[in-house]
Design a protein around this nucleic acid. Structure first.
Length: 225
DNA sequence: GCGACAG
DNA sequence: ATCTTGTCGC
């Protein structure tokens, strides 16, 4: 399989960002959801050009999962992508996008990992702390941790472990389709994250909030061209 | 020292 | 993430 090459990152910058992550990590709270959500948001980003970012937020009713609102924000990006520091590149624009929402969700499903991260600070946790809101992450690829492949049937899942610690779960959302990685971000725990991810799954690989955010991020991008 | 590496 | 056509399987 093809292995991506990651350009070396500035060690000074990496050290500073790591310090910030360690600090934010102390603010993450993993706990059961205080209440069943009524509105769930999904967010995602794309890059029309190498130095611009387009983020989207969609809000769906829960548990019916009807699309109620969708907004986007296009702006410039400063930092490059560095594995483990994705949030510093995308979160600023996601915050500006979030501010445009009329409906304020009870929870946000983010494209990327929550605590399934080397320092337990994936973008879902990062965004959750910044907004002080419940978040959970849905990633299509593994960043860290070990796991056994879940069974071929939709609904099957296996634990994602890192040094013996449970940091997420690998969920097969669709028969014979690559599974997704589910992990809590902030003000949410693994049980709630998995239950909601599955409750939002409607026959596609990605749960609805993430799937629609992903879809509209591509649609809006076309409108800009 | 050698791999691994969300989007 | 992004560049890209047709194509295999359910």
């Amino acid at each position: 399989m093809y292995r991506p090459y990651h350009p070396p990152a500035d060690p000074i910058v990496v050290r500073e960002l790591t310090r910030q992550q360690e600090e934010m990590r102390t603010r993450v709270r993993l706990e059961p959801l205080v209440a069943e959500p009524t509105l769930i948001a999904g967010c995602d980003s794309s890059f029309p050009t190498p130095d611009t970012i387009l983020s989207v937020f969609v809000v769906l009713s829960f548990p019916k999962l009807e699309l109620l609102e969708k907004v986007y924000h296009h702006d410039v990006v400063d930092l490059p992508y560095v594995p483990g520091f994705l949030a510093f590149r995308e979160a600023p624009n996601l915050l500006r996008t979030y501010e445009k929402l009329q409906h304020k969700p009870d929870l946000i499903m983010v494209d990327g990992h929550g605590i399934a991260h080397p320092r337990r600070m994936g973008i879902a946790s990062h965004l959750g702390v910044l907004l002080d809101m419940p978040t959970l992450g849905i990633a299509k690829q593994r960043l860290t941790g070990r796991y056994d492949e879940p069974a071929e049937t939709a609904g099957s899942h296996t634990p994602l472990l890192d040094k013996g610690e449970l940091i997420g779960e690998v969920l097969r959302t669709k028969d014979r389709v690559q599974p997704v990685f589910v992990s809590p971000g902030h003000r949410c725990d693994q049980v709630s994250a998995m239950r909601l991810a599955w409750a939002c799954t409607k026959g596609y690989k990605l749960p609805e909030p993430t799937r629609l955010a992903d879809k509209w991020t591509q649609e809006f991008k076309k409108e800009l061209k």
